[in-house]
C-alpha cells in the first residue's frame, strides 16, 4: 500500500467541504472491504483518504412519516441483515445484506460502499432497484435525489461528482400485499461474488399483480430492471406459467459477459432460473 493522507470529518457538511477543498485523487472510506484490497494491490493510489467513521448521520435508519424508510449510506450489511424493520418491510434488502462476504465482512461493509463501488455484481443494488429506492446525494450545491435505477452509469461509475457524498437511501412504503426476494448464485457458499443476482418484488391487488419489479445484477455493466418481464406480469394473475414467461422475458435485457466468475451462457441460464425462483417466492410472500 502506498502512503496517503487520512482525513476524519465529523459531519456531512464537513465531509462535503473537505471533498470540495481536496479535489480529485481522494477516496472515501466507509467499511473499506472494497477499498482496502484495491489500495493494497496498488489498483488505486489515492493521495488522500477520507474516513467516514466519524459521521454518525450516515449510520442511521429512520422511518419516514411512518411510511417509507431512510437508510444511512454507512449502515452495515450486518445491520440490514438483522434490522427488524428492514426484515419486515424490505425483506429482499435484508436478504442481500445477509449474503455479502462473511460475518466479519458484513460487520464492516456498508450499503453506500456497495453502491458507490459500483460493481455490476453489487448485491444490494437489485433489491433497491426493485423497491424503487432513491439515492440522496449531498454536494456543495446542496441535496439532490436520484433514483437508484439511474445511479449507476457504468462499471465502477456512478452519477456522483468528485465533490459529492451519498448520504442516504430513501425507500418508499411497500404496502401490505407486497413481497420480495433476492437470490444470487455463487460457486462457493460464502465469501464470494454474485455470478448473477436477481431481486423480485410483487404487489398484489384483488388477486392480480398490481406492480412488478425485477432487477438483475452481474449481467450488464450496471444493475438493471427487466421492464419487459415486469410489464408481462402487471395486471395479470400470476401463475407458474406466467412466471416462466417472465423469466424468459427477463433475459431480453441481459447482456452478460464471460469472465472468471462465469460464462455468458451460464449467466443467461441463471437469469431464467433465479427470476423464476425469486418471483415464485415474492408471490408467496405477497399472498401471505
Amino acid at each position: 500500500m502506498r502512503r496517503f493522507e487520512l482525513l476524519l470529518p465529523q459531519s456531512v457538511d464537513e465531509c462535503v467541504r473537505t471533498l470540495a477543498q481536496q479535489g480529485p485523487e481522494t477516496k472515501l472510506l466507509a467499511g473499506g472491504t472494497d477499498l482496502l484490497p484495491q489500495l493494497k494491490n496498488g489498483l488505486l493510489k489515492p493521495a488522500r483518504v477520507i474516513d467516514l467513521s466519524g459521521v454518525a448521520q450516515l449510520r442511521a435508519i429512520e422511518s419516514a412519516n411512518g411510511q417509507g424508510l431512510r437508510i444511512g449510506s454507512a449502515v452495515t450489511a450486518r445491520t440490514l441483515e438483522l434490522d427488524r424493520t428492514v426484515q419486515g418491510r424490505y425483506l429482499s434488502l435484508a436478504e442481500s445484506g445477509a449474503l455479502v462476504g462473511s460475518v466479519q465482512v458484513r460487520n464492516l461493509a456498508t450499503l453506500g460502499g456497495n453502491l458507490c463501488n459500483a460493481a455490476p455484481s453489487a448485491d444490494m443494488a437489485p433489491p433497491l432497484l426493485a423497491l424503487d429506492a432513491e439515492a440522496i446525494i449531498v454536494g456543495p450545491k446542496g441535496e439532490r435525489r436520484v433514483p437508484v435505477a439511474t445511479f449507476f452509469t457504468g462499471v465502477r461509475k456512478t452519477v456522483l461528482a468528485p465533490d459529492e457524498l451519498l448520504v442516504e437511501l430513501a425507500l418508499p412504503a411497500t404496502g401490505p400485499n407486497s413481497g420480495g426476494n433476492y437470490l444470487r448464485h455463487t460457486p462457493r457458499r460464502e465469501l464470494d461474488i454474485a455470478v448473477v443476482g436477481v431481486a423480485s418484488q410483487l404487489t398484489l391487488a384483488n388477486g392480480v399483480c398490481a406492480k412488478a419489479r425485477i432487477a438483475l445484477a452481474a449481467v450488464a455493466p450496471v444493475p438493471l430492471r427487466a421492464t419487459g418481464a415486469e410489464r408481462a406480469l402487471e395486471g395479470q394473475r400470476v401463475t407458474p406459467e406466467l412466471i416462466a414467461r417472465a423469466a424468459d422475458l427477463a433475459l431480453e435485457v441481459a447482456r452478460p459477459i464471460s469472465d472468471q466468475r462465469g460464462s455468458a451462457d451460464f449467466r443467461r441460464h441463471l437469469v431464467r432460473v433465479l427470476t423464476r425462483r425469486t418471483l415464485t417466492t415474492a408471490l408467496a410472500r405477497a399472498s401471505a
Binding site: P37, N41, S102, P187, R188, R189, E190, L191, D192, I193, D259, Q260, R261
Partner: peptide, 28 residues
C-alpha cells in the same frame, strides 16, 4: 469443486485473489 488458476489467452492470471481463487470455506 472450486479451485483453478485461470489464465487468459495472453497467459495472464484472471483470478489473482482469494476472492476468485476459491479455496473452500468451513461453510462448504
Amino acid at each position: 469443486l472450486t479451485e483453478a488458476l485461470m489464465y487468459d489467452d495472453k497467459a495472464r492470471l484472471t483470478n489473482p485473489s482469494l476472492l476468485d481463487y476459491r479455496k473452500l470455506t468451513s461453510a462448504d
